[in-house]
Computed example of a mutant assay.
Amino acid sequence: MHAFRKAVENRDVAAIDELLADNVVFTSPVAFKPYEGKAITKAILRGVLRVFEDFRYVREYAGPDGRGHALLFEATVAGKALTGCDFLHFDADGKVDDLMVMVRPLSAATALAEAMGKQFDQIQREAAAELTAGSD
Rank of each mutant, 00 (worst) to 15 (best):
M1Q: 12
M1T: 04
H2C: 04
R5W: 04
K6S: 15
A7Q: 08
A7W: 14
V8F: 15
N10C: 06
D12C: 05
D12S: 06
D12G: 04
V13I: 12
A15D: 10
I16A: 12
I16H: 12
I16M: 14
D17M: 00
E18R: 13
E18D: 08
E18K: 12
A21E: 15
D22V: 08
V25I: 11
V25G: 07
T27M: 02
T27G: 03
S28A: 06
P29Y: 05
P29F: 02
K33Y: 04
Y35W: 05
A39L: 05
I40S: 11
K42R: 15
A43D: 11
A43C: 11
I44C: 06
L45Y: 10
V48Y: 12
V48F: 15
R50T: 05
E53H: 13
D54E: 14
D54C: 02
D54R: 07
F55A: 05
R56P: 03
V58F: 00
V58H: 01
E60Q: 05
E60M: 02
E60H: 06
Y61D: 14
Y61W: 11
G63Y: 09
G63I: 01
D65Q: 02
R67I: 07
G68Y: 14
G68M: 15
H69A: 11
H69I: 09
A70E: 14
A70N: 10
L71W: 11
L72Q: 13
F73W: 08
F73R: 04
E74F: 08
E74A: 13
E74S: 11
A75E: 01
A75F: 00
A75G: 05
V77R: 07
A78I: 03
G79M: 15
K80A: 12
A81W: 14
T83F: 12
T83G: 10
T83E: 11
G84E: 09
C85D: 13
F87G: 10
F87K: 12
F87P: 06
L88Q: 10
L88H: 13
L88S: 08
H89Y: 04
H89G: 08
F90Q: 08
D91W: 11
D93M: 01
G94C: 14
V96S: 08
V96M: 01
D97V: 09
D98N: 15
D98W: 09
M100G: 08
V103I: 14
P105E: 07
P105M: 01
S107G: 03
S107A: 10
S107C: 01
A108W: 02
A108I: 02
A109K: 03
A109M: 05
A109Q: 07
T110W: 02
T110M: 05
A111M: 00
A111N: 01
A111Q: 00
A113R: 07
A115R: 04
M116F: 01
K118N: 15
F120P: 00
D121N: 10
D121K: 03
Q122R: 05
I123K: 04
Q124F: 11
R125T: 03
R125L: 02
R125M: 06
R125G: 03
A128C: 01
A129L: 00
L131P: 10
L131K: 07
T132W: 05
A133W: 07
A133I: 02
A133V: 07
S135G: 09
S135A: 06
S135P: 00
S135E: 09
